[in-house]
Write a protein that binds this DNA or RNA. Structure first.
Lengths: 198, 198, 198, 198
DNA sequence: GATGAATGAGCTTTCATTCAT
DNA sequence: AATGAATGAAAGCTCATTCAT
């Protein structure tokens, strides 16, 4: 049977999931605590038994997402393939999540990146997206180590990779892309690999 | 001497400049009309003689920025150089603006891209950033036409270019980049050109 | 003991009563939500937990009044008397209410009838004063049925009856009437009955 | 040629006419001075050269209307006909004005009667509708004098007459009347005359 | 833990009126 | 007389958070 702790953790995750969806689709400032409570059929007051403030809720969500994305990337990093194949896999995973759990990527782009003031205290630098960034770093460093990727400043590579993918998902979200994200995978893999490889 | 029309236009631009700075540094929802008015030493009510609503103000600002950036890019497109050199110039201009008028790029990234609900009516698709996007399109198509760039989906190239640059400026803004933006210009030019060239 | 529902309903009625008084004496546009809240020693925000908007509050009040007046008239309609006596009773009831609960009649005349734009959505036609008008209709039709009243267009009779009574209360409110309303009952009964009877 | 005085008076009347229309159709509080100025293609500031305040403008308008209605009634009073015929004529005139210059009657009902606070200072009692009321009084007293009308309290008769007519126009305005106002003239004349005659 | 009424500061917007030109 | 920018107080409404139950 579930312990009290477990039950509380479960409830917290339910709240985070609901909040994640609402924040991602309506934005941080256009989502109210009552909105979240209503979606959960929970009282406003009780929400505060789980998260002391709206900001804290937002921060816990981004950590949660970072862990989730990090885990997915870890699988790729640990797989036994070429750097090129890993590059493609990362893009595929990113786009797949953008398709089946769009709220996650949207949260990343439209809540976390867009409202830095909310994350100022407690998520300085990349603290709250640490797991995710770490895996990208591993991907890059291993690529360099095995001689596939050029040895350049990590952030230069990171900006390229993540800026590019984020940009594409954003364009898709804005209904500006003429084709499905999947259909760009070849092009993008190609572009990124050409850019990063030796 | 200035006509009444001119004076009004001037005042509008002063308001836009002040609002631009405040929106860019504090975010759209954390900047209030009284904040803007106070910075201008103007009454709240009078602000509404120039812009009928906060949203409209935000929209006029993004159009203004788009025109400004578009103009800068136009100069590059019209210059007589190689595509590679143009690529570098675009990056330089982008980073220069990010340095001397950081509020412009910040507004782009943190207000325009981040609060789409505000720009929903009137800035659908890329209407309000039309001038800017158009110049990137020209850069790309001319590069393809003269055989320098690979002929791929425009958005795939656009996402790479703009996602990358935006990502770098963002990282800089977050104080995550270990070096100055300028110092990345070589790497980035290299990466982008490798990605896009034939 | 009172259930939560009951308590909420009670509070709603307290708010309606306060608002009714203020609207009736100061007018709809000269009564602010803070005014109402202050009279109730309640916070502005909390008011909105009971009524989603000032307009909705105004509409619920008129329905409330209509029901109250309708009930009073119903008693008369159901009493076993002559049409002439009923006519007098209606006038008496109307004037009595105008004396002991003047805010009700005033609300009717000075808020409901005077600010139609407020009641446009949701109170079209006579929806919100349905109960009241229905009883007048019953009075009239029964009077016709039993041969006491002339069979004429209902609205012609309604306009006479209600316009007349409203007009008198209005004149009283303006301090124009030289005598008390009660003292006009004979005259008015006489005039109306002469006008409507066969 | 027009003197300065005349020109000013003319302009004042133009303003009053525009304001009358706007007040009557949108209500006093929903009509702004800029609204009126715009309709007149005149500047806001200049409006204040003609009327020192919005309230004063409203008061001058009601006096203007009262004079106009008084004049029309005077013609009837001075005509050589029976009281019954005069009664009908008054109703006809009232309904005719309600049809061809609806803003006048609407102003009376929806601005003057409905926003007493505006007319408190300067239009106490019936000062500002004096000309109009006087003619009704003359109609009534002559009717009594010549033995056609019962000698009752004037206000009892006035309330009946004006309450009735006002009520009918109001019902028409609300689109509640099933027939045209004209078609009620017989009924109403009949009802009023039965009520008032000996 | 759970409820939701209560608070109150703060937001965007409006508008009668004034005043420099 | 004419303009319209400027003022500033005030309105309706929202919402994160608290607290009595």
């Amino acid at each position: 049977m579930l312990t009290k702790e477990d039950k509380k953790q479960l409830r917290k995750e339910q709240i985070m999931q609901s909040a994640l969806e609402l924040f991602a689709s309506n934005g941080f400032y256009n989502t109210t605590i009552p909105d979240i409570a209503k979606q959960l059929k929970m009282s406003v007051g009780n929400m505060y038994n789980y998260f002391k403030s709206k900001d804290i809720l937002a921060k816990e969500i981004i950590s949660f997402i970072s862990k989730y994305l990090g885990m997915e990337l870890k699988k790729i990093n640990e797989s036994d393939t070429t750097t090129q194949e890993k590059t493609r896999k990362i893009i595929e995973v990113y786009f797949t999540i953008a398709k089946i759990k769009p709220e996650m990527i949207d949260y990343f782009l439209r809540v976390y990146l867009s409202n830095r003031e909310v994350f100022k205290d407690g998520c300085e630098g990349m603290i709250c997206v640490n797991e995710f960034v770490t895996e990208i770093m591993i991907y890059f460093e291993e690529g360099v180590a095995c001689g596939d990727l050029r040895d350049q400043d990590f952030f230069s590579a990171f900006g390229l990779f993540m800026g590019y993918l984020g940009g594409m998902v954003f364009l898709k979200g804005e209904d500006i892309l003429p084709r499905e994200l999947d259909e760009y995978i070849d092009d993008i893999t190609n572009n990124i690999y050409k850019a990063l490889s030796v």
